[in-house]
Simulated assay, not measured.
Amino acid sequence: MILVTGATGTVGREVVGRLPAGAGVRVMARDPARIAGVAAGVEAVAGDYGDPGSLARVLRGVRTAFLVTARVGGGDDAVFVAAARAAGVRRVVKLSAAAVLDEGAGDLITRWQRESEGLLRGSGMEWTLLRPRAFMSNCLSWAGPVRCEGVVRALYGEAAHACVDPADVARAAVRVLTEEGHAGRAYTLTGPQALSAVEQTRQLGAVLGVALRFEELSPAQARAALAGRYPPAVVEALLDSAQRLKAGAKAGVQDTVGRLTGRPARTFRQWAAAHAASFGALGDAAGPRPPQAGPRASGPGAGTAGTAP
C-alpha cells in the first residue's frame, strides 16, 4: 500500500493522478472530499498531522509513504515520522527543497527543511528525498495582473532560476514510490534551463499572443505585498531566498528529472502553454488593458519565490 499525503496540493494531486492502477494507493487529506481525480480503487481517507490517532488509522497497512508538509517550523514531520515508524512503514519519500544544499541559506524555511530531513534520516526507516527548485506554477500568481494590466511585477528581474514544473516533480515521485533502488538517495530536481523573470515574461507573452511588460519591485514593495499573506518570519525567509536568487544560487541545472523519468524536464514555455487558460485567452484580440496606477506585487520572486526553493 502506498500512502500519498498532501493529496490536494500542487505536487500531491499530480502524484495521485499518475500512480499506476492496481498499485494499492491510499490518499490522505483533512477533507477527503477535496481530493480530485481519484481513480477507481484508490482509497481517500481523512487524516491530520495534528491528530496522531488519525495518522495511526491512515498508516495501517502502508508500506511506502509520500510525505508533504507545509507548516513552516511546525512539528508535522516529527509527528508523521513517529506514527509511520510505529505503524511499520518501510519507506518514506519526502518532498523537501533544493535550498537545503545552498551553503548560504540559513533562513527559517530552509532550517525547517533541513531539520525535517534529519528526522527522517534518523528514523530507522528507508528514506528518499526529493529536492525541487521553486515550481513554475508559482507564476500563476501573475495571472491577475497579466489579465488586467498586461504586466508582471517581481523582485530581481534579471536573476536566473532553474524552476521546475510540478508535474515533473510528481513524475519523479511516482518512479521513486514504485521502484526499488532509491533508498538513501536524495534527488535535486530542476527545470532544463535557468531563466530570469524578464525572460519568463517574454515567453509567457509569446504563448498568450500579447505584449507583456515587466516591472521590477523594490524590496520594500515586495515585503509589503508578502506581509498580507505570511507571518513576519516567513516574509523575511522569502526575501532572504530572493537575495540568494539575485546572487545566482538558484541557476544550476541538473538532468535528474530526465534520468529518473526517462523524459526531459519540461521547459517554462511548455508549462506556460499548458496553463495559458489561467492567464487569459490565447491571442486575445483586445490585448492587455492599459496599466493602472501604482505598484501591486504579484509575487516576490517572479514566480521563483516559494518555500525555500
Rank of each mutant, 00 (worst) to 15 (best):
V45R: 07
G124P: 13
R13A: 09
Q200F: 01
R26S: 05
V235P: 14
D284R: 12
R18C: 00
F268N: 07
A78K: 11
D77W: 01
H161A: 07
G283K: 02
P52C: 13
G50D: 08
L120K: 04
V253K: 08
A225Q: 08
A242R: 01
D107L: 11
L204P: 13
T69L: 08
L155E: 11
G283N: 14
T64M: 06
K94E: 00
P166L: 05
A86S: 11
A160Q: 15
R175E: 15
A78H: 03
Q193H: 10
A162K: 05
E43M: 07
G24I: 02
A98Y: 10
L226Y: 07
A36Q: 13
L130S: 12
K94N: 00
A97N: 13
K94L: 00
V176N: 03
E216F: 04
A222Y: 11
M1P: 07
L130T: 12
F268K: 09
R18K: 00
A21E: 15
T178K: 06
R153W: 01
L177A: 07
P291Q: 11
L120G: 08
V79Q: 05
L245Y: 12
M1S: 07
W142P: 09
L282E: 06
G74H: 00
V79W: 02
G75P: 06
F66D: 06
G306Q: 12
A305D: 13
A227K: 06
L140G: 04
L140I: 04
G184F: 04
A285L: 14
A36F: 08
G22R: 04
G301S: 15
L120T: 05
A36G: 06
D51L: 06
A281E: 08
L239A: 05
P309A: 04
A225W: 12
D31E: 04
A308W: 05
V27S: 06
L282F: 08
L95Q: 14
Q193P: 00
